[in-house]
Design a binder for these strands. Structure first.
Length: 272
DNA sequence: ACTGGATCCTGACTGC
DNA sequence: TGCAGTCAGGATCCAG
């Protein structure tokens, strides 16, 4: 479900309701997510204050006073909602924080690819965080980085930009969208793309991600913002999910092809 | 060091 | 209405 824009949308939706609230109760209903939830997690959280909500890549980070960080990842199908105290528990509601303002932050994740982890070390040194590449729209994400990292690499340029060590947050939807807007064939080897074209790709990744955040993310099947509203970027998709439809630029049929086990959409005339 | 592939899990959808 | 098969927004881990 969520790529970076959806996680950012979630962060913005939940932060005003949970920042500076204390955790009255933390409930684990199902420990079995991607990694088992720490059995002592409730004891670590109860009575503490959520002092800040931030995001790194697709990880949501809840700073818990000066004790540590609660790391949340939504996987493929996870979502967070802010609900009033007493809201009925639904199927796949695995974890929640009951807060001093009588609201609940509740995680629902049917496929359980998501994660709820505790870290009491410097979060930037955490195993899942320390090797991540730069955020889109940050100074460290630039043309030279893409160009240098890609030299001699044989994997496709699509796989290359979906790798979190290259740049974080570019998932399957936004990879196809960024490559279309840059005019780059997703099947090409990363190492064969010129510096000038990586300059264009840097721009399109940045603009696609920021436009998607501004639209509140992309709702395909069931993504909703924490208040229940859908994301509106779906209306701005140019190729993703549009196999057989005319290209918005040249009218030829949008192609669909599996690359590294992921569906990929592109225009074979506009993308070379 | 790179690369591709399998893998975790449930639900929605398609075709018979 | 049932059932089998396919596919889905992530990303880690492992073999070659």
């Amino acid at each position: 479900m969520p790529e970076l824009p959806e996680v950012e949308t979630t962060k913005r939706g939940i932060a005003p309701h949970i920042e500076n609230q204390s955790i009255v109760k933390a409930i684990v209903r199902n420990q079995q997510l991607r990694w088992p939830i720490d059995s002592d997690l409730s004891a670590k959280l109860e009575g503490q204050v959520v002092t800040a909500v931030t995001r790194r890549a697709k990880y949501l980070l809840l700073q818990i006073g000066d004790h540590g960080t609660l790391i949340l990842h939504l996987g493929m199908s996870g979502s967070l909602r802010v609900l009033p105290q007493g809201a009925a528990v639904q199927k796949h509601d695995h974890f929640e924080l009951q807060l001093s303002n009588n609201k609940i932050l509740r995680l629902n994740d049917p496929r359980r690819f998501g994660a709820v982890l505790w870290s009491d070390q410097d979060i930037n040194q955490h195993k899942l965080i320390r090797n991540l590449g730069p955020e889109p729209n940050s100074a460290k994400f630039d043309t030279l980085r893409l160009y240098q990292l890609s030299r001699k690499r044989k994997l496709t340029v699509k796989q290359f930009i979906m790798d979190g060590k290259t740049v974080v947050g570019v998932g399957n939807i936004y990879a196809s969208e960024s490559l279309f807007r840059a005019g780059i064939d997703p099947r090409r080897a990363a190492g064969s793309i010129s510096k000038a074209r990586y300059m264009k790709l840097t721009e399109t990744v940045n603009s696609v991600i920021s436009k998607a955040i501004a639209a509140g993310g992309t709702t395909l099947q069931d993504f909703t913002q924490p208040d229940g509203k859908p994301g509106y970027f779906k209306q701005e998709l140019t190729v993703y999910g549009k196999a057989g439809e005319p290209c918005s630029i040249c009218q030829s049929e949008i192609q669909q092809e599996v690359i590294a086990q992921r569906n990929t959409f592109y225009c074979k005339r506009c993308q070379t």
